[in-house]
Amino acid sequence: MLSKALIQERLQTRFVGRKLFVFETIDSTNACAKTLAEADTEEGAVVVAEFQTQGRGRLGRPWEAEANENLLFSVILRPSIPRPLAGLLTFFASVAVARAIDETGTAPAVCKWPNDVLLDGKKVCGILLENSLRGETIEYSIVGIGLNVNQERFPDPLRHRATSLRIALGRPIDRIDCLARVLLSLERAYEDVRGGDFEAILADWTSRCSMFGREITVTQNNDLVTGKAVGLKKDGGLVLQTPSGPRTIYAGDISLLPSP
């Protein structure tokens, strides 16, 4: 079981996770972190739960994870960066998680645009960022992370698309140690974010991305765009080479077409 005392004993961070809320069951760690952020809870506060009854992903899609096997947590950040950079927080979170995963001894974690982290071509971590923007400022940013750690089996629709650190490593790993690593990695990468410097983060992300040079399809509502992924713009947009010229994508569901 995760406990506040055990987690804090293992933390090597200065501020991330120093304020910590641990729940056995919660509706959603992101929703809780949002409530806390609205109540002026300080940057770096972390909400951890063993189980989420209403875990969610993009567009309210459910995020399901077995209790007591994985890591589900949300971090409150208050980055004072220009608004147009807000979109780059996605890459910051993905890269920080990928770096922490590497430390557990897996093959280098792979990034898929915009924010999935993969091992062996399967999703090991989902990230949901929620920013609160008012006028010119980012009031707060909630980084919600669902990391599959020790789950051994996934129900059918997920079986071919999801994996866990345990599956990748062939052995169970200590969740508290893993959480401490991810939080430290987030704190370190956040140093760059604070300075508004995303160059190293984007470079790391690009080197981990498996999509470049491949044909992909982006579904955005009823709009379908197919093209070759050729690069990442400075603002995080994915550049596709399509039959009608280059196109930059900012939202949508990505699927990789099978390699020819």
Binding site: T90, N115, Y250
Partner: peptide, 19 residues
Amino acid sequence: GDVLCIVEAMKLMNEIESD
């Protein structure tokens, strides 16, 4: 401070508040 909408970019859900 009331939320008016979400603008999603790169799986980042940005709640846009009224100022």
